[in-house]
Design a protein around this nucleic acid. Structure first.
Lengths: 195, 195
DNA sequence: TCTTATTCATACACTGTGTATGTATTATCA
DNA sequence: TGATAATACATACACAGTGTATGAATAAGA
């Protein structure tokens, strides 16, 4: 295979990342061999180890990419809300729906935690951090009762992730999603200063 | 090595389970080789594959054992509470503290989810199921607002697990634990019928 | 154009899983 | 009790997968 321009080379990295997202979300990180993965991208392991160091390094970059995309998508939703509290709630709902997507559920919520570490290890921190900032705002505006925003963000983030698994488990269309959102709203209303 | 009584044989299984709990929680499931594990138990892989089928089978049994123990410990706490709501809250607090224990955090919350599947796959279901029953009671007693108890149990269970990671991350003694419990109580009060 | 740095492929060494096989001990039943 | 079947392990092997070392081809810079 003849390599021409500089762009072709940078494309290699992007191709590997895209293939990894696809294969990881289909078969999972542990069940994916780097031979198969690179073959699907019409490359060899040489390219992969050159660009990412090792298998874990590839996963780290995949997680970073997905996390950044999620954060972007969530920002859009928050920005179009009528007020801070409404934006916060809608962001939670949106996160719950996004967590149903196979790619996010398998790579971010399942494999990344086990392979990369416990509490969102540097990567996948965008989303939690964004939520923490939102909470801080709400506390300053005296909408939400004063509390540690990191603790609260962790609690909410975790609840959404676990609920997403439960929703995805069921095959009853949107029923579980609606029930999840309803239960979530019960929890969230506890945060309000004015009940 | 000469094998004598029937009890000696049943002990083999127990020894392997105990060793697995120890080694899995120290190094993690993926980083543990079955050669090392069995050697630590003064056995060989033959014994392991005979009793548990494969590596994953061993993890399943380990998870079952730990989950049952957790549920037992939590039952004690719930039973000594003054009323149902108090018992529920104390159970949540207790779960949060238990989730800080390295063995539970590493094996149940990290590795088991990735290896065994998304939403607590049959095993590790005791705890969530117990919580669901508690919630159902509270709803029937008109203490908690009517909602889907499975959804709510998932949300709470997930929030506790994620918060536990955040707490364990910090090295500030009990500070994060207390902040976590405070934030949790904010969320939980939203469930009450009478605010 | 010559040199150096990148980019990737190929080949190899090593680790780890799972399975097949063999052996010793225990249970079953005549 | 002795013979047979079943169980409980150990040993040996095949194979897949990771990571590394090496080398070739291309691009970048002087």
């Amino acid at each position: 295979m003849v390599r021409r321009t500089r762009a072709d080379m940078e494309e290699t990295r992007a191709t590997l990342l895209a293939t990894a997202r696809k294969v990881f979300s289909e078969r999972g990180y542990a069940n994916t061999s780097m031979d198969d993965l690179t073959a699907q991208a019409s490359l060899t392991r040489g390219a992969l180890y050159h660009h990412f160091g090792d298998k874990k390094g590839l996963l780290v970059e995949v997680v970073k990419q997905i996390d950044a995309e999620m954060d972007q998508r969530l920002q859009l939703i928050t920005n179009t809300a009528k007020d801070a509290w409404d934006g916060f709630r809608r962001r939670c709902h949106a996160y719950l729906e996004m967590a149903l997507e196979p790619e996010i559920q398998r790579i971010i919520l399942r494999d990344a935690r086990s392979v990369l570490g416990g509490a969102s290890p540097d990567s996948q921190h965008y989303c939690v951090e964004s939520m923490r900032l939102l909470i801080d705002n709400l506390i300053q505006q005296d909408v939400v009762t004063k509390t540690n925003s990191q603790a609260l963000a962790s609690l909410i983030y975790g609840s959404l992730a676990e609920a997403a698994f439960w929703i995805a488990e069921g095959d009853d269309g949107n029923e579980r999603l609606e029930q999840g959102i309803a239960a979530l709203d019960l929890l969230l209303r506890g945060l309000l200063v004015k009940q």
